[in-house]
Design a protein around this nucleic acid. Structure first.
Lengths: 197, 197
DNA sequence: GTCTATATTTCGATAGAC
DNA sequence: GTCTATCGAAATATAGAC
């Protein structure tokens, strides 16, 4: 029967939601704290109760993706290097597709604000996590246990997915999502030269 | 024997060159007119002699790409719709690869400044040209004379190229450019399910 | 064509009342 | 938790001399 005490947390989440939308739509630099505040019906100053700096809002949105990437890599790294990883790669792509569908805005935020995201490197925790994630992916794609051509194809497969569910998707808006996914998986299969699950 | 009177034009070109570099490197919003002026050894105010507004510099850089895209589309549109266009698509990709290699900065300018580029939509001429170019590409990729799967593959092939010569190329810096191009063409060939020239 | 000087605007951030 | 009011910095843009 107690009145919910989490209004603060709700407001904080709303700030992040609105910020994600505006940062994605209009760009981080061109989105002022005033824009965010007005959308929420509060004032600019109120935002400073929840976030010390504007950058901290972007940072929190960014670190969410680290979580997904890290978990995905962790699963994959448990697989022995070489042929087994090549065989397991399609499953990684499936999970990536699923994630991109559910987080289009979050992905757009990054692809459309590389400068602002890059500035987050000033944050020590973020820089460290980024470097580790990149090293882990590059290590996977640089393995001598996998032929160069196959590694290029693994990289290309990521490109195909990000393209179709990113900018280029405009031409196929009429195609049902499920059919588009099926076609994507088919193309990815050809890129990897192995059938998907 | 007459002293060249085109110093103005040369300065104008230099402004565009420096602007392209700084916009690409540091972002459009984070590049001030002062930055550009100082690099050229002139003052901020002098820039206003050549360009009425900062945006006009970006606009001129942008419209250059319209030229390439329009010419590429024009060639392709002369080909009869259907099988013949499917057969001609690989040649389009070759030209695209060649262009991307020779204009990496110009491409980076766009991919890294979607907000600023998007703001150019306020310019009537630019908005018109953009819409026409997009319509022309969408029309090509929407043709009922080409099976859906093939059209998706045509779209994906663009994605593969932009990916490998864009962000994802980091993992293969040690691979010679020529070899990387060869591998790219091989993957593109698989995506399209036709051999490249 | 280029300069100095300045007007004007916008934004991130802070202080303090309620 | 939210507000009003304001500061300081930086950027775009303009005016007018040379």
């Amino acid at each position: 029967m107690s009145r919910p005490r989490n209004q603060g947390l709700e407001t904080r989440e709303k700030i992040l939601d609105v910020a994600l939308e505006l940062f994605t739509q209009n760009g981080y630099d061109k989105t002022s704290l005033r824009d965010i505040a007005e959308r929420l019906g509060i004032t600019k100053a109120a935002l400073y109760y929840y976030f010390e700096r504007k950058e901290d809002i972007l940072l929190e949105l960014h670190l969410r993706l680290h979580q997904f990437g890290s978990e995905l890599l962790e699963e994959f790294e448990e697989i022995p290097d070489g042929e087994e990883r090549v065989a397991a790669w399609p499953a990684v792509l499936d999970k990536l597709i699923e994630f991109l569908i559910g987080n289009r805005d979050a992905m757009l935020l990054h692809t459309r604000n590389p400068g602002a995201i890059g500035a987050l490197y000033a944050n020590e925790r973020n820089r460290l996590e980024n470097e580790i994630l990149e090293q882990r992916l590059v290590r996977i794609l640089s393995s001598p246990a996998i032929p160069l051509e196959q590694r290029v194809r693994m990289s290309c497969s990521i490109g195909v997915i990000t393209e179709l569910f990113g900018d280029s998707g405009l031409a196929f808006v009429d195609v049902p999502v499920e059919e588009l996914i099926a076609l994507t998986r088919q193309v990815v299969s050809d890129v990897l030269r192995v059938p998907l699950s």
